[in-house]
Simulated assay, not measured.
Amino acid sequence: MRIKMLALLLLALPMAAFAQTSTPVGSWTTIDDDTGKAKSVVEIYETRDGSLAGRVVDVLQSDQGENPVCNKCKGDRKGQPVEGMVIMWGLERDGDSWEGGKILDPANGKEYSVKVTPSTDGSKLEVRGFMGFSLLGRTQTWMRQ
C-alpha cells in the first residue's frame, strides 16, 4: 500500500509543477515590437480579490532615457514614473486564458482590453491588447524571467 501511495505522489509532482508554470503569475520580459529587444520587466501578481494585475518593475529601454514618465497618461498616472506603475489590472481566468481586464500602453497613454495566454510550457505569454473585439488588436509575446 505504501508503495502505491508513494508512486501516486511521485506521479502527481510533475503535474503540480506544470500547473504552476502555466499561470501568468511571475516576472516577464516585454519585447519591443520594432527592435526585438527587451523593453521592460513586468511582474504579474494576484490581487486580494483573486484577479490578476501587472506592474512595471524595471524599464530596460525607453525613448525618454532613464526614469521615463507617462506624459500621455490621463488621471492619476499622468506624469508618473513608468517604473512601479500598474499597467494591467482586472484579469479573470477563463479556461487557459485570463481576460476581462485592461492594459495601459505608457508610450501613448491609451488603455485597451486585454487577454493573456501562457504557452503550454509556461515560458512565454501571449498578451493581446484590443479595442472592442479581440480581432481588432495586437499581440505581443512576453518571455518568463
Results as ranks from 00 to 15, higher is better:
2 R>K: 06
4 K>P: 02
6 L>P: 04
6 L>W: 06
13 L>W: 13
14 P>W: 09
14 P>F: 03
14 P>T: 05
17 A>V: 11
18 F>N: 15
18 F>T: 13
18 F>S: 14
19 A>Q: 08
21 T>L: 08
24 P>W: 03
24 P>H: 00
34 D>H: 13
36 G>Q: 07
36 G>R: 05
38 A>E: 15
39 K>W: 05
39 K>M: 07
43 E>V: 13
43 E>C: 05
43 E>G: 04
47 T>S: 10
48 R>Q: 14
48 R>E: 14
50 G>L: 08
51 S>T: 15
52 L>C: 06
53 A>M: 01
55 R>P: 08
56 V>K: 00
57 V>W: 01
58 D>I: 01
60 L>V: 13
63 D>S: 15
64 Q>Y: 02
64 Q>H: 02
64 Q>R: 06
66 E>T: 15
69 V>G: 09
69 V>W: 03
69 V>A: 04
70 C>E: 04
70 C>S: 04
70 C>V: 05
71 N>R: 15
72 K>N: 10
76 D>E: 13
77 R>H: 09
78 K>H: 01
78 K>G: 04
78 K>D: 02
80 Q>S: 04
82 V>N: 07
85 M>C: 04
87 I>R: 09
89 W>E: 14
89 W>G: 10
96 D>L: 12
97 S>V: 15
98 W>T: 01
100 G>E: 00
101 G>E: 05
103 I>S: 00
105 D>L: 06
105 D>K: 06
105 D>S: 11
106 P>V: 03
108 N>V: 14
110 K>R: 12
115 K>S: 06
118 P>M: 03
119 S>R: 08
119 S>A: 13
122 G>V: 12
126 E>D: 15
127 V>A: 11
129 G>K: 00
129 G>L: 01
131 M>S: 15
131 M>A: 15
132 G>W: 03
135 L>K: 11
138 R>L: 02
141 T>C: 04
144 R>Q: 03
